[in-house]
Design a protein around this nucleic acid. Structure first.
Lengths: 268, 268
DNA sequence: TTGCTCCTCACGTCACGTGAGGTGGC
DNA sequence: TTGCTCCTCACGTCACGTGAGGTGGC
């Protein structure tokens, strides 16, 4: 430590043996060392300490006060961060206790940009008919887009407009991003709407990989996670098909698609 | 970040262009990235994350739980440290507010070793006679030691046996360390006691530099500091003359001695 | 031809800690 | 002669950030 402080010029030995290089300190260097250690114990950097102490070791009350107030704010920040970490760690531990094993996905918070989509919206009577409805609707949507000469972009997005978790009469919208210019041109297709899907400044999201049939636990986990952090839902659940269209041309469902689930939220 | 993870082998691109070196990732690498980011947000190191995730990205519930519990304990430690720092910063700020400028010394906590001392003990009637008494007593003590052929060691220590801060009838002991062997030999000198000054496992200490006459504020600061941290005093105040004997042979007081003040304390 | 986005080194951050290899005085 | 304590490099820590200098496709 003393070698380090010597190198930094923070505390130089009062004398150095010319032949052996031994560092010799005098008793009256003790106050300066104590001052350095005391400031260091507050978490102040050596560089800042060097600025405070200067060459003579006198510290101005004003500059010290400024630095302490700065440090006070920093510590508050750091404690908040630790607090956040602690809550998150505890939440994960509880999760493991309850479910026996860690979930195969992670919830992250981010924003989702606005985009222009072509979409179809229907009420799906029962949850177990969702697969069939989506297949049909996406096929119909892609056919209409082809007829209109509009190039579909990626990823497909299925939106669930239900305000809460329901298993019947699901208000479902299937959407495909298109170029912005198509927003103005009147779509002459049956039931196809071209609209802007607005930006979501904050969403809780997770990436799920596996069959659609096994997705509900992931949905519940996402909603539960966001809910348990005290957020309020601020829009329909979005299901992004990141690994491409959910269905092949032959009407086969993708066996293990990569899906991003997003729920727009508001800070409580 | 991705370059770094590539280098560590934590998240390698599924494909790297042979000619340009461009890193290409696939959509199904997203879950692994999210897992990495989620664990990192808990303050877990990349090395530990690599151990947890392994090559396949499956994390065992047991190992995760172990690591989370470890991390939980770490965070608790870190928060305690921050809490300590915050209190210390606040204490220093209050000090500046009250006194207008930072004190020229720092209080540190440490232990003080046991040692054998030769000493004289007297009641000093008034605090303003302390200088004269000490001069006389130290002169007498050194004379007796010389007569007995005992080599005085350093540093001189003055002990104040009063249980509280008083200004009259101060129970004062002046002491000089001597070699351990003198503890057994009967001292045939007038009033000189050879005794063990016991170890103090915990003392609050500060190093003061300046005239003896201006030392009282430092003493009050030390006692106040230890007291305000909730410690109980556990022995007489010790005044170590680090820069050598306080008086010259001619009876002059050292103009700006380096003095270490120690107050033995107990955790509350 | 000009931007743009990617690339590869290589060095810096912060406060020391840790060897490797060496030396003077007891 | 042997320990002991000091010395001087030089590299490692941790998770990237920051240039410098260069490149392929629009």
């Amino acid at each position: 430590m003393l070698r380090h402080y010597d190198q930094l010029g923070l505390l130089k030995p009062s004398q150095t043996d010319k032949f052996t290089g031994y560092r010799y300190y005098t008793i009256d260097q003790l106050p300066r060392l104590n001052r350095i250690l005391a400031l260091k114990a507050l978490g102040i950097s050596l560089e800042q300490i060097a600025q405070l102490l200067g060459r003579d070791g006198q510290l101005s009350a004003e500059r010290l006060r400024g630095m302490l107030e700065l440090r006070q704010a920093e510590i508050a920040q750091e404690m908040q961060e630790k607090q956040r970490q602690l809550l998150a760690v505890e939440a994960r531990l509880r999760q493991i206790e309850h479910e026996g094993r860690p979930p195969p996905y992670e919830v992250v918070f981010k924003s989702a940009p606005a985009m222009v989509v072509a979409s179809l919206r229907r009420i799906v009577p029962r949850v177990d008919e969702m697969g069939f409805y989506c297949l049909t609707l996406y096929r119909q949507l892609y056919a209409e887009l082809a007829r209109l000469g509009i190039t579909p972009l990626q990823p497909e997005i299925t939106l669930y407009h239900a305000q809460e978790y329901v298993e019947t009469d699901l208000d479902t919208e299937i959407a495909v991003p298109v170029q912005e210019k198509h927003l103005r041109s009147e779509p002459a297709a049956a039931g196809v709407t071209v609209r802007e899907l607005s930006e979501a400044p904050l969403v809780a999201a997770l990436v799920y990989e596996g069959p659609f049939a096994e997705m509900p636990p992931a949905v519940l986990s996402l909603l539960g996670h966001a809910g348990s952090h005290g957020y309020a839902f601020a829009g329909p659940l979005r299901e992004l098909h990141l690994s491409g269209p959910a269905h092949t041309a032959e009407g086969q469902e993708h066996p293990a698609p990569v899906v991003e689930l997003q729920i727009p939220i508001q800070r409580p």
